[in-house]
Nucleic acid binder design. Structure first.
Lengths: 134, 134
DNA sequence: TAATTCTGTAATCTTTATTATTACAGTACA
DNA sequence: TGTACTGTAATAATAAAGATTACAGAATTA
């Protein structure tokens, strides 16, 4: 439903929780996607201060803090900008009493749903996730 | 993020909570999308027993029960089949210790996240939503 | 019973989103 | 200075979403 970028971000952070200084090419070969996509995802994670990257020869990325402190809520927020539930693409008919209000209704639904989702995601750290699946 | 079908389904049910026997064409003109898309969405809602439809002349759709009993969790489940969080499209590298486990990890994350989301959505009925935005 | 007005669904086309790829400048190390 | 990385822009390929057309079937009503 939601696109695969969340899974990709989690995959990256899991790899980095096990080893420092991994190259985008190495990471890409584990996820089996293009290294440029990895670098884009790394870029988002870096902006959110979840990872650090060294450029140049022998460069690569590492976690910026303990995997215990990185939660899936952090990852979610770093990965997505748009609200969870989109509006319909076409503008509803404003002369219909429902059409005129549906946008606001969806915003309210989205706010509540997203808050509930993030609360749950906040309770799952990368460390916990890795141990659980170990 | 998630596609607009959830918003469309909510829009439909909101309209039907105010008036019975609405045609797909009428509904489509409020949402401002193609009537065939409305009929497809109605088909899903009908399979979930949320609405009933009369075919033929003067036909149309109506709620199958009180809008107080229809929750957004019902709507969500009727609207989507796939899990909330997709896996990455490409199969991860099975010779990597993370690649081999990421699928299971994502399934666990998804189950927890989806449960939290549905719990919240269950607390919002169509009636409540309409009154709130009124 | 025939015309009318709905629905249901398949098939196809268009548009948008996602992912892949290419290209190349910049950085750090040896 | 050569090598091996990153960052990012631009473009191409692929997949998903949505729109449209088409038509058979159902119920009403004239």
């Amino acid at each position: 439903m939601i696109n695969g970028r969340f899974a990709i971000a989690i995959h990256i952070l899991t790899l980095l929780s096990m080893e420092d200084g991994l190259s985008s090419e190495y990471i890409a070969s584990s996820i089996n996607i293009n290294p440029v996509l990895v670098r884009k995802e790394l870029s988002r994670l870096r902006k959110a201060n979840l990872i650090e990257t060294r450029e140049g020869k022998n460069g690569g990325s590492s976690l910026a803090c303990s995997p215990r402190k990185i939660t899936l809520a952090d990852v979610y927020k770093a990965t997505y900008e748009q609200p969870l539930f989109n509006h319909s693409r076409s503008k509803p008919n404003p002369s219909c009493p429902v059409g005129i209000r549906i946008g606001k209704m969806m915003d309210e639904v989205n706010d509540e749903a997203e808050a509930a989702l993030l609360k749950k995601l906040k309770s799952i750290s990368i460390e916990k996730l890795v141990k659980q699946a170990g």
